[in-house]
């Protein structure tokens, strides 16, 4: 609770930095527009204005600075413009409308969740295999670790296209990427978690003459819960990033990624920025959701970290 004030301070510092950046970034465009609207601009030719930096031009034309905050097609929109656009597209539209960000959000969220579910389940299964089979541990685990250093996300759009050419379309191709991205963090985290009981705890179970499966359900699985939640939080945000990147350059018609690209290509920067922030909010909500589940579960299991 006591960190609310510092957090708000940091956020307002970032916002302030953003607001300060708006006039220099947009000044050239605004000055051109102002000249067309017969306002006084110094210097008065576009060529002469190119000689100045954005900040220099803003200082010379202080009377134009308010205009930079309300410019229609800004290079850098101001915070209130983005907020307004988000309000219009999230609350102001029917959620079935193609202009509603809620609709696009669902298009992105559905494959993310499906893929996350697949990736997490497979990841847990592989982790159990690795913990109980020495051969799998020795042969698969090094590759699971190496695969984390490979920029596989860069291939997401290509995987979509290949699957599309094989006739697989819709939800599934994006889910595969989301599944892949959440898979390895879960494997690595769960292997760590399932191995976290120390020798004394394992010995205790042996003195109870517990079977292997009893040891798994009563000791290893519960002990891995904190590790599982840490991996789930990494996995869900990786899945969301994967789905968005998969939508970006593949000509997808709906979804956050598609909105970002449409705004970029048709000169509607506000659309891109609104999609970007909506995606950020979605990621935050998903990670936050898992944090809450984590806190409740660990508390009920008596493992809460104070």
């Amino acid at each position: 609770m006591k960190s609310i004030l510092p957090v708000l301070t940091v956020i307002s510092a970032i916002l302030l930095f953003w607001v300060v950046c708006v006039p220099p970034m947009n000044m050239h465009l605004v000055a051109d527009q102002a000249q067309r609207d017969d306002l006084v601009v110094t210097p008065d030719t576009p060529a002469a204005r190119q000689e100045f930096s954005g900040a220099g031009l803003a200082l010379r034309n202080a009377h134009l600075i308010p205009l930079t905050y309300t410019f229609v097609r800004p290079r850098l929109p101001s915070p209130h413009q983005v907020a307004g656009e988000m309000y219009r597209t999230i609350i102001g539209q029917k959620i079935t409308s193609k202009r509603s960000l809620v609709y696009h959000g669902w298009v992105t969220l559905a494959p993310t969740l499906l893929g996350f579910l697949i990736g997490t389940s497979l990841g847990i299964l592989l982790a159990v295999g690795i913990v109980y089979s020495r051969v799998m541990d020795k042969s698969v685990m090094p590759w699971a670790i190496v695969s984390q250093t490979i920029p596989i996300l860069a291939l997401a759009p290509m995987i979509i296209v290949v699957l599309g050419s094989m006739g697989i379309q819709g939800l599934f191709p994006k889910s595969i990427i989301a599944a892949y991205l959440s898979f390895f963090p879960v494997v690595v985290g769960m292997v760590k978690g399932l191995r976290s009981p120390d020798a004394m705890q394992l010995d205790l179970l042996r003195t109870y003459n517990a079977s292997k499966s009893q040891g798994f359900w009563a000791l290893r699985l519960p002990a891995s819960a904190p590790y599982l939640f840490a991996s789930l939080k990494i996995g869900i945000s990786a899945s969301l990033v994967g789905t968005i990147v998969a939508e970006l350059p593949t000509g997808a018609k709906a979804g956050f990624g598609a909105r970002m690209l449409v705004g970029d290509q048709y000169g509607q920067p506000l659309v891109s920025w609104a999609a970007l922030f909506a995606a950020a909010l979605t990621a935050a909500a998903l990670v936050g959701l898992f944090s809450v589940i984590e806190r409740i579960t660990l508390k009920r299991m008596g493992m809460a970290a104070t």
């Binding site: 996300l153 945000s237 990033v241 956050f256 970002m260 970029d264 920067p269 970007l276 995606a279």
Partner: peptide, 11 residues
């Protein structure tokens, strides 16, 4: 760090 910052690439 958890946000999809790659999305800023077009910008």
């Amino acid at each position: 760090a958890a946000l999809p910052i790659v999305g800023t690439a077009p910008i």
